[in-house]
Design a protein around this nucleic acid. Structure first.
Lengths: 141, 141
DNA sequence: GTCTCTGCAAATCGTTTGCAATGCT
DNA sequence: AGCATTGCAAACGATTTGCAGAGAC
């Protein structure tokens, strides 16, 4: 089964009409697990699909998020980043090099864990900011 | 000891020159624990301090955050909200009524808990989004 | 032919920046 | 005088909106 077919299947499984821009964007997301923002997605695909509009990238990512195949990541205040990995995990953003790392989150013990408060949780984000290992080592030289 | 004096003391303790806008903003933050954004702070204080500029609110909040007397809350992608409560806790934002609730977070078990990865954590945010108790009840009627 | 999807341009809005005016020591 | 603080207006940048044209069934 070709990669292309997998992408189309993935879209159809999630009730998304598999148009060309949507296939391209989904492929990009699978191959570039860097929690990209809209600009990164757009400028990566735009060269091989010159008609692509940034508005389409916005539309598509909103659709993907609604359908649950990506999660929006609000670790920055000035942009949304997108994560194709949707199982529970957190993120660490290095304020020096800008890299975003996936962090395994095994358990969050909070008021909401017990459901005593009867709040209906739709999304959960665990975000850290700081200096990553690489940058700490770099700074020590 | 008057409230005013407490505010000045608080600022001085944190090496902040207690100017009038800073005192007013700090007072607002203590009296209105609603995780306000810049606009809310500005429009609340502006009537009794007509010279106040929104730029000053931005400057002041950035300063307060640097000095550690407020935390920036990135639960929304399009704005920063500020929390005068700085001990460890999380937040729940109701996507229906917009209210932001403080949530007690007792423990977060993650890769970073063990410090094996030697990442230097500067901030931690635990953010939930969903429907709050009140709105769930309202919807059931 | 209708309904969906896309692309372009303008508008919106939170935030940042540059700079002059003011205030404090 | 010199440095910190403030205020105004313009600039910026991510996102949204309106709408017209293209595409699919």
């Amino acid at each position: 089964m070709s990669t292309e077919l997998n992408l189309v299947t993935k879209l159809k499984e999630n009730n998304i009409n598999p148009s060309l821009p949507r296939i391209e964007i989904l492929e990009y997301l699978y191959k570039n697990r860097i929690h990209p923002n809209i600009e990164e997605i757009y400028s990566a695909i735009s060269p091989k699909m010159s008609s692509l509009s940034k508005a389409t990238v916005y539309n598509t990512m909103e659709l993907f998020e609604q359908k649950g195949i990506v999660n929006g990541l609000h670790i920055e205040s000035n942009e949304i980043r997108y994560d194709i990995r949707t199982d529970r995990h957190g993120h660490f953003k290095c304020i020096e090099c800008g890299a975003i790392y996936d962090i395994e989150v095994y358990d969050v013990k909070s008021e909401l864990s017990t459901n005593n408060l009867k709040f209906a949780i739709i999304t959960e984000e665990v975000n850290y900011r700081g200096i990553c290992k690489n940058c700490i080592e770099k700074n020590n030289n």
